[in-house]
């Protein structure tokens, strides 16, 4: 009797607690974000942990993974010339194409800042390459344009400049073609620059003009310092993208000629899906993650030397 009473007592308490829990605001928050959380855990956290495990294994995908300790990492750091080569190519690409692209984006943004009737059309036109730029179609277009008998050489010949250079087949020019493609896709950085340019108070310029500041002085003393947070943001995001560049090289050159365009991620893909060494490729992936982390950290450390933050 006493027992059944106790059960009877507990029951409403349990239902009550559930009700209270359901009515809490944080519960609604958790439930609403569940789709994201589940997706994040299932498709990001779990695969990442798996790849961390595989990076310590011999794993050819066909057979179950076999624990191999640090073997993959040791080989990468001691006996893999292509690892060094691809890292060099990737750094070269990222360190040159990103600053170039940002400079270009800033210049175009400054030009498009002036309000004329055509501004909207120009902005859309300059943004267009960024929308289609990452696509396979543009990569294939690029490949055709710079082939020996491609558009670029044809135009040069029409202008009277005899050219039969294989732009993509020449060790010293091929990587520049990929950099050019990347610089051409400056649109998204440009839009971000545009929006922050518009936020610079006009009063600052007026005051400067009253004080007799010339155009370039206004640019270097007002515009550029106030833009540094945006430049910083763009730099970090684009650097990460630069390190992870894949499709341009994979489609246009496949790392050729003589591995001069062998991006790190392309090399990783080769190891994983052409030689079926998934463990080795996982190890490569984790090394890249650490490199990107370290590089981003480094950028953040330099932040206080050159990025203007209001209120400081």
């Amino acid at each position: 009797m006493a027992q059944s009473n106790a059960v009877g007592m507990r029951r409403p308490g349990w239902a009550q607690r559930l009700k209270e829990w359901l009515c809490r605001e944080s519960t609604a928050g958790v439930i609403c974000s569940l789709p994201f959380i589940i997706g994040f855990v299932l498709f990001l956290i779990v695969p990442m942990l798996l790849s961390a495990y595989y990076s310590f294994c011999d794993y050819n995908i066909l057979a179950p993974a076999e624990w191999a300790g640090f073997k993959n990492y040791v080989k990468i750091f001691t006996a893999d010339a292509k690892f060094v080569k691809s890292l060099g190519v990737t750094f070269f690409y990222a360190l040159i194409s990103v600053p170039l692209r940002l400079t270009f984006a800033l210049i175009v943004a400054l030009i498009l800042l002036k309000n004329t009737k055509m501004t909207g059309i120009y902005r859309a036109a300059y943004y267009l390459p960024s929308i289609i730029g990452g696509s396979v179609a543009v990569a294939i277009l690029w490949k055709r344009m710079f082939a020996i008998d491609g558009t670029f050489n044809t135009v040069l010949n029409m202008l009277g400049i005899q050219s039969n250079i294989a732009w993509l087949g020449n060790v010293s020019t091929a990587i520049w073609m990929l950099i050019l493609l990347s610089v051409w896709q400056f649109g998204s950085s440009m839009l971000i620059f545009l929006s922050s340019l518009k936020q610079i108070p006009q009063t600052l310029y007026e005051a400067a003009r009253v004080d007799g500041a010339r155009g370039y002085q206004q640019f270097f003393r007002i515009t550029l310092p106030l833009l540094t947070p945006t430049i910083f943001f763009n730099l970090v995001m684009q650097m990460i993208n630069g390190f992870l560049a894949f499709s341009q090289s994979y489609i246009i050159t496949q790392g050729k000629p003589m591995n001069s365009t062998l991006f790190y991620v392309v090399y990783m893909y080769q190891q994983g899906f052409e030689y079926f060494k998934a463990g080795y490729a996982s190890a490569l992936a984790w090394i890249m993650l650490l490199i990107i982390g370290a590089f981003t950290g480094l950028l953040f450390l330099t932040k206080r030397f050159w990025v203007y933050e209001e209120g400081n």
């Binding site: 008998d149 087949g169 020449n170």
Partner: peptide, 27 residues
Amino acid sequence: LGGDVFASLVAGSVEQNPMVYGSSPDT
């Protein structure tokens, strides 16, 4: 026929094999 020509072709593609694809004998 060297790497400079093959770099701008799709490897393994019949359609882009240099025997049937190209515009001048030296490619």
